[in-house]
Design a protein around this nucleic acid. Structure first.
Length: 436
RNA sequence: GUGCCCAUGGUGUAGUGGUAACACUAGAGUUUGUGGAGCUCUCGUCACCGGUUCGAAUCCGGUUGGGCACCCCA
């Protein structure tokens, strides 16, 4: 009994000393075994982006808090409850970026990108951070790929071009059955009118709304149209339609976008209930889904007011972002093949210390001659090395023992047939090239 | 942020109060100049901390992490 308290304190100390760490909630390690997928996505996006003449841009991972407060809106979920504040110098001055468009608009203004040929077509890739409760397809640190077309004329052809590039990227990743949903959420002129009509309508029926929608009535009326509650869905039917409320400018812009999509033979569905949660969107909005996965793989839209919201001169812009983790999730789910890293076809095996010393040089000589080789300098046992050569699916083993060192030769062994022959080191590269 | 479910070696699972079992993977060895098989061994203080109990992977509480729904979003 007397030992019990002692034991408890000991345990505590032990626990302290042994405490291990976990990655922060909603943030994951991307391990070597997952790299094939990541590289596939990165490679394809780079190819598509460059082929469609988008220039790469990278911005810092942190930005001034106000950049997002002003562009996304103080009432947006992202700003009001999902940002990571970075404490530095005793002040919460910066936040980890929750999205990519506002920082790029900032960079455009700050670096005078309006002085180069317009519009500027940009693409980016990087981590975004949102303090949400994580679940599948939703992380606190996640990666987005995005396209932006900024500056120039407010031309619907750019909306179509953004949608096209996004669509092509997903196609390039071998996604089938993509569903493109488009909508227009109007502009400064027509959106308030619609909002008022919508509010008038729903206020009349407020009693029939679900609890959430009663709140939405105050915070985000456009979201009323998105509710899945049966009673709200029923009300939706007779609700005023956004499409009917668009002003002539927005309406013709949207029509043109659709015409371009038709021209490109990109099939789409009009989703009058599609709205986006960020303040800077206007006119065209869209999302892309793939069947069997409920979350949008990509989304975007036009943001003609963004630049003035953050202190620039009025500049048109349109963009899209794709969720990399979501894309990879679906690739795995649909068993979309990704190229595995190429396995070296030659494995260098050594026997003894002297040979080991020479082996390093031989391996390097092969690499200089652009022959991919593998070795295992950690295992001196010949048998072990042969096992590894076999497991690594090498086709040839290059065997170097004491005898070979003295003779300045190596044994080339064909691992499939088991045939082997001794060749002079001087002819080694030539002999291997002949066989490979 | 709210509600519900979950947590055992690298992976996938068994074990529901009595000193942690199996498969695969990985590592070591099977007597040191030749691989693919076989065999032997090793890898977990059962996420963490605390409580109940003679005794906890198992019951209870908290923490952390994971998942689902809502909210919202990529």
């Amino acid at each position: 009994m007397a030992i019990k308290p002692k034991k408890a304190s000991e345990n505590k100390e032990k626990a302290k000393a042994r405490t291990t760490f976990q990655s922060p909630k909603g943030m994951r390690d991307i391990l070597p075994r997952e790299q094939a997928w990541w590289q596939r996505v990165m490679k394809t996006s780079k190819e598509i982006a460059e082929f469609y003449n988008f220039l790469r841009i990278e911005t810092p991972i942190m930005e001034d808090v106000a950049l997002f407060e002003r562009s996304l809106g103080l009432d947006s979920d992202v700003v009001s409850k999902e940002m990571f504040y970075v404490r530095a110098g005793g002040k919460d001055r910066y936040v980890l970026r929750p999205e990519g468009t506002a920082p790029i608009a900032r960079a455009y203004i700050e670096n005078g990108l309006h002085h180069i040929s317009q519009p500027v077509k940009l693409y980016y890739e990087g981590s975004m951070f949102r303090h949400e409760k994580p679940q599948a397809g939703r992380l606190r640190e996640f990666h987005q790929l995005g396209f932006e077309i900024m500056g120039g004329q407010n031309d619907p052809i750019y909306d179509a071009q953004i949608i096209l590039a996004t669509h092509r990227l997903l196609e390039g990743l071998k996604f089938k059955n993509l569903q493109l949903q488009v909508n227009s959420i109007g502009c400064r002129v027509c959106r308030p009118h619609f909002r008022k009509k919508l509010l008038d309508y729903y206020r009349k029926h407020e009693r029939a709304l679900c609890e959430d929608c009663k709140k939405r009535l105050k915070t985000n009326p456009l979201r009323l149209l998105d509710c899945k509650e049966a009673s709200c869905v029923a009300l939706k039917e007779h609700a005023p339609s956004l499409m009917d409320s668009l002003c002539t400018s927005c309406s013709s812009h949207f029509k043109s976008v659709l015409e371009y999509l038709d021209e490109l033979a990109l099939s789409y569905t009009l989703n009058p209930y599609l709205v986006r949660g960020l303040d800077y969107y206007s006119k065209t909005v869209f999302e892309i889904f793939v069947d069997g996965f409920d979350l949008a793989l990509a989304g975007g839209g036009r943001y003609d007011y963004l630049f003035e919201m953050i202190g620039g001169r009025p500049t048109p812009g349109v963009g899209a972002a794709l969720g990399v983790e979501r894309i990879i999730e679906v690739m795995k789910q649909k068993e979309i093949d990704v190229p595995q890293p190429k396995k070296p076809r030659v494995f260098v095996v050594y026997i003894g210390d002297l040979a080991k010393r020479k082996a390093l040089k031989i391996v390097e000589e092969l690499r200089v001659n652009n022959i991919a080789v593998k070795e295992s300098f950690g295992k001196d046992l010949l048998k072990k090395q042969m096992q590894l050569a076999d497991k690594g699916e090498a086709e040839y083993a290059l065997i170097l023992g004491q005898k070979e060192v003295f003779e300045e030769s190596v044994i080339i062994r064909d691992l499939k047939s088991g045939n082997q022959e001794s060749v002079p080191v001087l002819k080694m590269v030539q002999e291997l090239k002949k066989r490979l």
